[in-house]
Simulated assay, not measured.
Amino acid sequence: MQRRNFLRAAAIGAGVTAFGNTLTRTAMAAPAQNGPGPYGPLQPANANGIQLPAGFTSRVVARSGQQVAGYTWHNAPDGGAVFADGGGWIYVSNSEINPGGGVSALRFDADATITGAYRILANTRLNCAGGAMPWNKWLSCEEIDLGFVYETDPWGAAAVQRPAMGRFKHEAAAADPVRRAIYLTEDVPDGCLYRFLPTTWGDLSSGTLQVIRAGTATSGSFTWGTVPDPDGSPTATRNQVSGAKRFNGGEGLHYANDTAWFTTKGDNRVWQLNLAASTYELAYDDSLVSPGTAPLTGVDNVTGSSSGDLYVAEDGGNMEICVITPNDIVAPFLRVTGQSGSEITGPAFTPAGNRLYFSSQRGTSGSSSGGITYEVTGPFRS
Rank of each mutant, 00 (worst) to 15 (best):
F56S: 13
R179T: 01
L52I: 10
A129M: 07
T185V: 02
P228H: 09
V336K: 09
V160R: 12
T226Y: 02
Q272K: 14
V330S: 08
I372D: 05
S93Y: 13
V178Q: 07
S58Q: 08
D145F: 12
V330W: 06
A174D: 03
S221K: 14
V149E: 00
A32P: 10
P38G: 10
T223N: 09
Y284W: 12
N318S: 13
R179Q: 05
L193G: 01
T303N: 13
G166R: 00
P177A: 07
N5A: 13
P189M: 04
Q240Y: 14
T152K: 09
I90A: 11
V82R: 10
A276C: 05
N127A: 14
G207W: 00
D229M: 06
P99D: 05
F358H: 09
Y280A: 11
W271I: 13
G371V: 10
I182P: 00
G80E: 02
Y39Q: 06
G292H: 06
W89F: 15
S306Y: 07
T264A: 04
G100L: 12
I114E: 10
A129Q: 14
P234H: 08
T337C: 11
G87Y: 03
F333G: 00
D285P: 04
A129G: 11
G370P: 00
T373Q: 14
F247R: 10
R8V: 15
G304Y: 07
A132K: 03
T226L: 04
P228S: 12
Y357S: 11
G366T: 05
H74C: 13
S205H: 04
G298R: 06
C192G: 13
Y194E: 02
D286N: 15
L42Y: 01
G308Y: 03
S369V: 06
R335F: 01
R335V: 02
C322M: 02
A29K: 12
R246G: 08
N48I: 08
S307T: 10
N98V: 11
T297A: 13
P198K: 05
N248Q: 14
C141E: 04
A181K: 14
V61R: 03
D145R: 09
E96W: 06
N274L: 07
N248D: 15
G304W: 07
R59H: 08
R25W: 09
P41W: 08
G87K: 07
F222P: 04
T185M: 02
R125E: 00
G86C: 06
P347S: 06
